[in-house]
């Protein structure tokens, strides 16, 4: 960030003017501006197109509690999405935070296990969601006999978001100054107490922004859920009932091809949720002091 600001400040007009007739410079400037405009235009086009076609079809009916073929309500799917988020986070957040604590507070430099954990976490974050879906079906659905269910889907997603939670928590823990730890030790606190009452609380905003990103991934996920949580369009009544989330619901509607307008409306709701989640994650990132999540 700071480097960039300096770039802008120092770029006084003088050297730009002196090269006005340099064709290559002009072409490069044009290309760069064109690319940025293209990127922004594509995103704006996608969002505006979906909003224009979808908003007129958002009606109270679409939020009715019951789904049937006359009224393809998305309310059950929204409820399922919330269940799915809660369950996946329930499994993933404690494990992710625990792993990050191990990696930053307990593992010594050059620790083989820590290196192995980091490597596998990186591997996990690169695996495509369809492979997770297939694995979830082979392991949770078939091998553990959980069937196509909320719990199979949530466990699959929990593994999927684990590397994200681990990485963001680790970054947040590393950012806690060592003087905090030293101060705590100096006051006679043990290792565990230091971790839980000094280090973790100062890392909370970082952890929360990781959790928000994870929620975003869960909301948008479809390929991993079709074969683990199934596509039943009812609100789940137990952990073992099959349940489609909003993204899967949208895919199913689009696939059936009979409910184009309702598909647009569902897309609008999904977009609004994603925009809200992104704004929230940017807000928490701001609390961290201008750190961006890609930085």
């Amino acid at each position: 960030m700071t480097v960039r600001k300096e770039n802008i400040k120092k770029r006084s007009g003088t050297h730009r003017k002196s090269h006005r007739c340099d064709v290559i410079s002009i072409a490069l400037r044009l290309a760069v501006n064109l690319a940025a405009v293209t990127t922004a235009a594509v995103l704006i086009f996608i969002i505006v197109y979906i909003l224009i076609n979808g908003i007129p079809y958002i009606s109270a009916d679409l939020f009715a509690w019951k789904y049937n073929s006359e009224n393809v309500s998305m309310m059950p799917a929204i409820v399922n999405t919330i269940y799915m988020i809660a369950l996946a986070l329930l499994f993933s957040v404690p494990v992710g935070i625990g792993s990050a604590i191990y990696l930053t507070e307990y593992a010594k430099r050059g620790n083989k296990i820590a290196a192995c954990v980091k490597l596998t976490a990186e591997t996990l974050s690169g695996i495509p969601s369809i492979v997770y879906g297939l694995f979830g079906q082979l392991f949770f659905v078939k091998y553990l006999h959980m069937g196509l269910s909320l719990i199979s889907g949530a466990l699959t997603l929990a593994i999927m978001i684990l590397p994200l939670i681990m990485r963001t928590t680790e970054e947040a823990l590393v950012a806690v100054p060592d003087s905090y730890r030293e101060g705590s030790f100096g006051l006679g606190a043990g290792k565990l107490r230091t971790v839980f009452s000094v280090v973790l609380p100062s890392a909370v905003p970082g952890i929360i922004s990781g959790v928000i990103l994870a929620i975003g991934r869960i909301v948008g996920e479809s390929a991993a859920l079709i074969f683990t949580a199934g596509t039943v369009a009812e609100a789940a009544t137990s952990l073992l009932s099959s349940a489609r989330t909003l993204a899967v619901h949208m895919y199913a509607l689009s696939d059936e091809g009979l409910y184009l307008n309702q598909t647009y409306a569902t897309a609008v709701i999904l977009l609004v949720i994603v925009i809200f989640i992104n704004a929230l994650s940017e807000y928490t990132a701001k609390l961290l002091g201008g750190k961006t999540r890609n930085g």
Binding site: A36, T39, V274, S281
Partner: peptide, 26 residues
């Protein structure tokens, strides 16, 4: 800078079904 950065983060967050649907209808 900030709006563009936000836009790019948002682009990364849009679910693939929404992209797919957009591709399908446009």
């Amino acid at each position: 800078y900030k709006p563009l950065k936000t836009a790019i983060n948002l682009m990364a967050g849009i679910p693939s079904v929404v992209y797919g649907f957009f591709g399908l209808v446009v």
